[in-house]
């Protein structure tokens, strides 16, 4: 069933500093989008932005 399979997909948000010296990931939250500024870089005080959003799909579903 589609809705069950949807729940099996884990979506992550990749957060980076503009200078690229810091990177972290967290589960996707509603309202996230790429290039959204989400805070201040802990390394250099610049902007912390969303660099990407990706999904990890279970191997079984990938094959189907």
């Amino acid at each position: 069933m589609s809705s069950n399979q949807q729940q099996a997909v884990s979506v992550y948000t990749v957060i980076k500093c503009v200078n690229g010296d810091y990177e972290t990931e967290r589960p996707f939250q509603d309202g996230d989008y790429v290039l959204k500024v989400v805070g201040i870089c802990p390394k250099d005080g610049g902007n912390l932005y969303i660099a990407g959003i990706y999904a990890l799909v279970p191997e079984k579903e990938k094959e189907s």
Binding site: Q5, V11, V18, Y33, V34, L35, G52
Partner: peptide
Amino acid sequence: SKAMNTFIRGIPVGDSLGPLVAAYLFM
């Protein structure tokens, strides 16, 4: 059917690859 859920949540899809590459340049 799956795509509808993805679009409603505002999650980038595989087809967003081109705009994603362009977005990196837009920075």
